[in-house]
Amino acid sequence: MLHPATPWARLWRPLAAMTLVIVASNFLVQFPINEWLTWGAFTYPVAFLVTDLTNRAAGPSDARRVAAAGFALALVVSMALAPWRIAVASGIAFIVAQILDIAVFNRWRQQSWWKAPFIGSVLASVVDTLVFFFLAFAGTELDWLMLGTGDLAAKWAMAVVLLAPYRAMLPRLHCWVPAR
């Protein structure tokens, strides 16, 4: 068992949430709703919520720690639940998008409460979508450009929807990541 003072012990909630979100998204992206949207578009944006809450509560260093560990854990589990190409594409897109989200969040963190999570999520979603859909589906029979466009629109809509739980958690950040 980890000692409560270690960074990993403090970060167990965001790490567990991140792993769950990525694994669920990697599984659900395999199931199109229609020609331009997959179920993964509704779960994946929660990864940005996890990162943004962690960044606000504990800073960019811990947010990067959660992103890196979440990436590694989710990649291993995703390799068991999703085709290898989807798992690898997801991992690469995820870590690049998370690093961007953390950087953008930090640039905007002193502005109105909603700007940092919204702008970071919107920009990181573009990068994530382009990298993921190209690596996962280019050369397959799926119309990945159409799916990517639909998923990006859903991710942007989710960026707006997820502002509500982000705002609700702001006074409870000590529960998300306890103080050192």
Rank of each mutant, 00 (worst) to 15 (best):
H3V: 07
A5P: 02
P7H: 11
W8Q: 11
R10C: 10
L11G: 02
R13M: 14
L20P: 09
F27I: 11
F31L: 06
P32S: 02
E35N: 14
E35Y: 15
T38H: 01
G40P: 00
G40L: 00
A41I: 00
T43L: 01
P45G: 02
F48R: 13
V50L: 04
T51H: 05
L53H: 00
T54P: 13
T54Q: 11
T54D: 15
A57V: 09
A58I: 08
A58H: 06
S61D: 12
D62L: 10
V66K: 03
L73C: 08
L73A: 11
L73Y: 05
L75W: 03
W84C: 15
V88T: 14
A89D: 04
S90I: 02
A93I: 06
V96I: 08
V96F: 04
I102G: 05
V104S: 07
F105G: 10
W108Y: 15
R109F: 02
Q111F: 14
S112M: 15
W113L: 13
W114P: 06
F118T: 13
V126P: 02
D128C: 05
D128T: 04
L135P: 00
A138N: 07
A138Q: 04
T140E: 03
E141K: 14
D143N: 10
L145D: 07
A153Y: 10
A153F: 08
W156Q: 00
M158Y: 05
A159P: 07
V160N: 11
L162H: 15
A164W: 12
Y166R: 03
P171L: 09
L173N: 06
L173Y: 01
H174S: 10
V177M: 04
